[in-house]
Design a protein around this nucleic acid. Structure first.
Length: 553
DNA sequence: GGCCATAGCGCG
DNA sequence: AAAGCGCGCTATGGCC
């Protein structure tokens, strides 16, 4: 953090009542550090993503915050105003009746130390700090709106929990981005050489193994083929008398032709090379760490998104490069069967909840309703949550409907609401975007009826809302786990280094592993109680203590 | 040259 | 008639 970044501070009570005068400080980070050490307050600020990385860079951590922007986005959704600008300035303008400014474009993903980063810093410093009365006014308004916001959970107050969890998670996100995931560039390089052969002598050229596979592919087709071009590959197969709809792997697998195994191997290695090859390593790994930018609430369902480096898509094979520091280890905790357990808890379906008390929910289902066929039980449950109706799932779904009618009704009701153009909400009250918002580009396919009811489009939306309730509630459970786990890790050297939807990775000295494992289980239990009180459903973790991430699972 | 849609595949 | 959800990233290929 450049020295001299100042700011404005003011002490408040929990309800936002002013407790003292406004104070301008020249060194915001030091002032925050001093107050944090003394009072451990809940910090109220416009944006964690904007401010907290700067505090972290100055060596300052805080325990709690209320993120006005994240709260605003949740509340706008709850009020049917999904997608309106969420910045402090926008929220204030809506209160004063002034023109609402659009949100600034999100910061582009930049490699660490990228040239544009310093440019951005200057812009930030040049901008005046927000007036504190704006912060107070918006906060007071949010408190009222939060109390009124609906949720799937019965009773009130759920959205307040959601806002608190989202704010806490934003702290974790910034800290994880700052800390980074331990990454051994030398091991990554050796892995790439083993799989791809030596890198090309030409800068950026394909490595030896890809060159070789391409040559063999040309031989098999009897012509030069550029395998990275789907159109060219389709034409090459057509010349062999084979008509394909696409060059997707699952379709190629059914084709009898000597080019197929070569092409499949090429595609797999090509993917590794372009997405997680040497240039990825150069761009994203510095000082033995992979640093991504994590974006809480970046996905409509409330899951996190990331910017840069594809942090949530690290291929399993590449995880061999994720190695703990000497004397340290990873605690990798994976919440097994999370979404079906969420369905059991949310629906409170008596029999499903009883199955959810078991260590293996699918096995419990199989024993009760699927003649011991675990695969069938799993297909049925996943089909119900994703809206699958055809193929193998049909008879399984019938059994599910018969044995677990309450759970069945919950997802069906969510689907019907979506098909009719309505909104659904998660347990803690995150609201899905309205149907007027195309939440996914390419949503409309040729021949899809525009009518929201009855048509293919309506059914697609039904599948979306059906899944939204489950995926979104699972994301909320995970947010609470993150927040609680973070709290339990304070005082230890342990650091949260990775989080991926239902999986938590802590990097800690070997001697702390036992305490971290205990903290994970405690956090999971606290999350269950906070969301679902006395549900019989359990949310067990598969926990692995490993020095290499690839060894987990 | 930049912009945008699409294809394809990695993750949960 | 059949229809499984959510993402990010990198390539190609058509466009201006």
């Amino acid at each position: 953090m450049p020295s001299g970044a100042g700011g404005l501070l003011r002490p408040l009570a929990d309800d936002g009542a002013v407790l003292g005068p406004e104070r301008r400080v020249d060194d915001l980070a030091s002032a925050v550090a001093a107050i944090e050490a003394r009072d451990r307050p809940r910090w109220l600020w416009p944006s964690t993503a904007e401010l907290y990385p700067r505090l972290l860079a100055a060596g300052v951590r805080v325990e709690r915050c209320h993120d006005l922007e994240l709260a605003e986005a949740i509340l706008l959704g709850a009020e049917g105003r999904w997608g309106q600008p969420r910045s402090l300035a926008a929220a204030l303008a809506r209160l004063t009746g002034d023109p609402v400014p659009p949100d600034p474009p999100s910061r582009a993903a930049l490699p660490p130390g990228g040239a544009q980063e310093s440019l951005f810093d200057e812009t930030f410093i040049a901008a005046p700090p927000p007036p504190l009365d704006a912060v107070l006014r918006v906060f007071a308004d949010q408190r009222t709106r939060t109390a009124a916001a609906p949720s799937l959970a019965p009773g009130g107050g759920a959205v307040r929990t959601l806002v608190a969890a989202e704010s806490a998670a934003a702290l974790v996100a910034a800290e994880m981005g700052f800390t980074g995931l331990p990454w051994r560039a030398d091991i990554h390089d050796a892995l790439l050489r083993e799989l791809l052969g030596p890198p090309s002598p030409v800068d950026g050229g394909p490595p030896a193994r890809l060159v070789e596979l391409n040559a063999r592919l040309n031989e098999a087709f009897g012509a030069r083929v550029h395998p990275d071009s789907p159109a060219e590959v389709l034409r090459a197969f057509a010349r062999q008398g084979i008509t394909l709809r696409s060059t997707r792997r699952w379709e190629l697998q059914h084709v009898e032709h000597p080019a197929v195994p070569i092409l499949l191997e090429y595609k797999e290695l090509y993917r590794l090379w372009v997405a997680h090859g040497w240039s990825w390593l150069d761009q994203w790994v510095t000082g033995g760490r992979f640093r991504a930018e994590y974006i809480p609430g970046g996905v409509v369902s409330g899951r996190w998104a990331t910017r840069g480096g594809g942090a949530l898509q690290i291929p399993r094979v590449v995880r061999k490069a994720v190695v703990a520091d000497p004397g340290w280890t990873f605690v990798v905790a994976d919440a097994g069967q999370l979404e079906p357990r969420i369905l059991a808890a949310v629906s409170a379906d008596h029999r499903l909840a009883r199955a959810g008390a078991a260590g293996d929910l699918y096995a419990a289902l199989a024993a009760e309703a699927f003649d011991g066929d675990r695969t069938k039980a799993k297909v049925a449950l996943l089909g119900a949550m994703y809206g699958q109706t055809g193929g193998m799932a049909a008879p399984a779904l019938a059994a599910l409907r018969r044995f677990y009618p309450t759970a069945w009704d919950l997802v069906e009701e969510a689907a019907r609401t979506g098909e009719a153009g309505g909104l659904v909400r998660t347990w803690l009250g995150r609201t899905c975007p309205p149907s007027s918002v195309s939440w996914r580009e390419g949503f409309d396919e040729p021949g899809m009826e525009v009518d929201a009811r009855g048509g293919a489009r309506g059914r697609a939306r039904g599948r979306f809302t059906r899944n939204f309730v489950i995926q979104g509630t699972a994301a909320e459970w995970a947010l609470v786990v993150l927040a609680r786990l973070r709290t339990h890790l304070t005082g230890l050297a342990a650091e949260l280094v990775f989080f991926q939807h239902d999986e938590f990775v802590v990097h800690c000295p070997e001697g702390e592993a036992e305490a971290v494992v205990a903290a994970v289980h405690t956090a999971g239990d606290e999350a269950r109680r906070l969301l679902f009180a006395d549900t019989p459903v359990r949310f067990p973790f598969d926990v692995a203590v490993v020095t290499c991430y690839a060894e987990a699972k």
